[in-house]
Design a protein around this nucleic acid. Structure first.
Length: 466
RNA sequence: GGCGGCAUAGCCAAGCGGUAAGGCACGGGUCUGCAAAACCCUUAUCCCCGGUUCGAUUCCGGGUGUCGCCUCCA
């Protein structure tokens, strides 16, 4: 079986061939850290984390680099408004980013470079472009000579002349051509700045990624990824910079995730419908948020709403419940029967097939539900074999783990002994057919957020609403 | 204007040449002291019109609708 990935460069699904056998070098454009991340930032984080986990599951060693843009106009503006320094703001939101993505079970990148920590490489990169004639200094700024890069537009599939109409020159800029873009920006009075051959200033947006890719992953990498909006101009410009300098392909595969929409329209600050992960995970289990994001193929748009999330709560809960119920049953067994490996393999196969098809997580999740259904059928059988039940647990845990989903039912409680005592009391009442007492105990626990379920194998309990 | 995505049951969403996965919700049933959990059953002329084909949701052409990129917005 071969893994196929959709490549924006060719607009086709292509078999994945790594540069080095069983190794993947990937770069994912990270956030500008001037605020808490929104769910639009969370999607690429979750999606490409899943891509990474899948590669690892398939035996690849993945070097995963994702940057923090920690200096730009928005950070500078935030700095002015809040009267604290740019680095302080960046530190605050990098910390928040790690907390939020951590909650979503996103693994830490192999390297998480910051633009401001890559300054020497950025300046060297620009210098070389200037030396080779691909860039020029102008009044303290440095611009890339876009028309000199003949393949410009190959990623976004636009001819350079079509792009020209959309290009513009801001006040104060002095470009040779409207299509040229900034590599270095001269500092305005009072702004954060770094010394350079062209005067004090800071890097343009695109150059940091080119410099970081080169520094941490090399001239040519396997996968470069980000949100679909980054295709143009960001990634187009990265290609221009890097390939003009190295005369080598920057990345073999370009992956772009679709956007998140609110009520079928773009999420944006101006519309005022931005949802921060920081807030969302107060209302919904982060695992459910991750599950919801992965329930749709990553290139398609996802519409977000509380109603949709609530459906996901139910769906994900089904998986978690099955997992829990399996473990409840197994806890009463010998723990020595081994695992029915053939049964696990029955689910691994379709799962891998789904993921091999451009990371079709929707189909992969369908496999999880197949496991749940089969496991639940098995659980109804009082003579179910332990090795089969163990296989269901294994399949569920292993495959949901590849998607970065933790199936857990909340049973943590300091009230364990108290709950136990009440459950025992209720069991006695039930044996005596004193159902009024039994039901009142059940109601009492329910009001305390503990749900009791009677099964042939004894009482199960979990935390939850109603 | 240039480039692109999407249009599948009440809702979400796969499939991409051989008469429609999965989930949520609804209804009916089974199990249960009653519940819960679970299982079973039920629910789709695949936006429209042409074309190619023995056969199209799936390919091609044309519509319509919708979302997006072309503004440092993931």
């Amino acid at each position: 079986m071969t893994l196929k990935v959709y490549n924006t460069l060719t607009r086709k699904k292509e078999p994945f061939h790594p540069i080095e056998e069983k190794k993947v070098r990937m770069y994912v454009c990270g956030p500008t850290v001037y605020n808490y991340i929104h769910i639009g930032n969370a999607r690429p984080a979750v999606v490409f984390d899943t891509v990474r986990r899948y590669f690892e599951y398939r035996g690849y060693i993945v070097k995963y680099v994702s940057n923090f843009t920690d200096v730009d106009d928005r950070l500078i503006n935030a700095s002015k408004e809040r009267h604290i320094s740019v680095p302080e703001i960046a530190d605050q939101f990098i910390k928040a980013y790690k907390e939020d993505t951590g909650a979503l079970n996103v693994k830490t990148a192999t390297v998480h470079p910051r633009a401001t920590e890559t300054m020497p490489e950025i300046i060297t990169f620009i210098s070389k472009l200037v030396d080779s004639g691909y860039a020029y200094a102008s009044h303290g700024d440095v611009y890339f000579r876009t028309r000199k890069f003949k393949e410009y537009g190959k990623l976004s599939h636009q001819s350079i002349d079509d792009l020209k109409s959309g290009a513009r020159i801001d006040i104060g800029e002095s470009k040779e051509d409207p299509l040229d873009f900034a590599l270095w920006k001269a500092a305005k009075p009072g702004e954060i700045k770094w010394a350079s051959p062209w005067g004090d200033g800071r890097p343009g947006w695109h150059i940091e990624c080119s410099a970081m890719v080169e520094k941490y992953l090399g001239d040519t990498i396997d996968i470069h990824a980000g949100g679909t909006d980054l295709t143009f101009p960001h990634h187009e410009n990265e290609i221009a910079q890097s390939e003009a300098l190295h005369h080598k392909t920057m990345a073999h595969y370009w992956l772009h995730n679709g956007h998140i929409q609110i009520n079928h329209e773009k999420m944006s600050k101006s519309i005022g419908n931005v949802i921060l992960v920081h807030d969302l995970i107060k209302k919904f289990d982060p695992q459910v948020v991750r599950f919801f994001i992965l329930s749709v193929q990553y290139r398609h748009p996802i519409n977000f709403s509380d109603a949709l999330l609530n459906d996901a709560v139910q769906a994900f809960g089904r998986l978690a419940t099955t997992h829990y119920n399996l473990n409840h049953r197994l806890s009463q067994m010998t723990n020595s029967a081994g695992i029915n490996e053939a049964l696990v393999e029955n689910y691994r196969k379709p799962f891998v097939e789904a993921m091999d098809d451009d990371f079709n997580t929707a189909n992969a999740i369908a496999v999880l539900f197949d496991i749940a259904r089969d496991a639940n059928i098995a659980l109804q059988n009082e003579n179910a074999l332990e090795k089969d039940l163990s296989a269901y647990v294994q399949a569920l845990t292993e495959l949901s783990g590849v998607l970065g989903l933790k199936l857990a039912v909340d049973t943590d409680s300091i009230l364990d002994t108290e709950v136990d005592a009440l459950i025992k009391k209720r069991e006695t009442a039930r044996q005596n057919k004193d159902f009024a007492v039994a039901d009142s105990i059940r109601d009492e626990l329910k009001n305390a957020g503990i749900i009791l379920e009677d099964t042939p194998q004894g009482v199960r309990w979990k935390r939850g609403q109603e």
